[in-house]
Amino acid sequence: MDALKRDRGHLRVNAEECKGCGLCIEACPPKVIRLTERINHYGYRTAEYTGAGCTGCGICFQVCPEPGAITVLRLVTPRSGVPRRNHTATTGAI
């Protein structure tokens, strides 16, 4: 990804909570979630973030049936409520 452009959002999926239902994949507007090839402890192929393009909209969180399988993060901005669109990366890609 372009290291000079930070995504507005970021996504964590807890592979031990996800049941691989795929609703988040269906729901994600920019289509940045996919199923892993790995099988988790429970025998599910779980969801994972592709690593780029998350807008932080939070729709995946809302449609996910598990309480804590998905965590949505948003880019910290100097002025609260206005996400930075062109933040210079100082620590590299996420």
Binding site: Y42, G58, P67, V72
Partner: peptide, 27 residues
């Protein structure tokens, strides 16, 4: 440091679901 949590497990849920022996975060 760059991102803050916007949406995560609501506080109204227990932190662990004690009905189950394992995977106490899943319903």
């Amino acid at each position: 440091t760059e991102y803050e949590i916007a949406l995560s497990r609501p506080k109204a849920f227990y932190s662990a679901f004690e009905r189950k022996e394992e995977l106490q975060h899943q319903t």
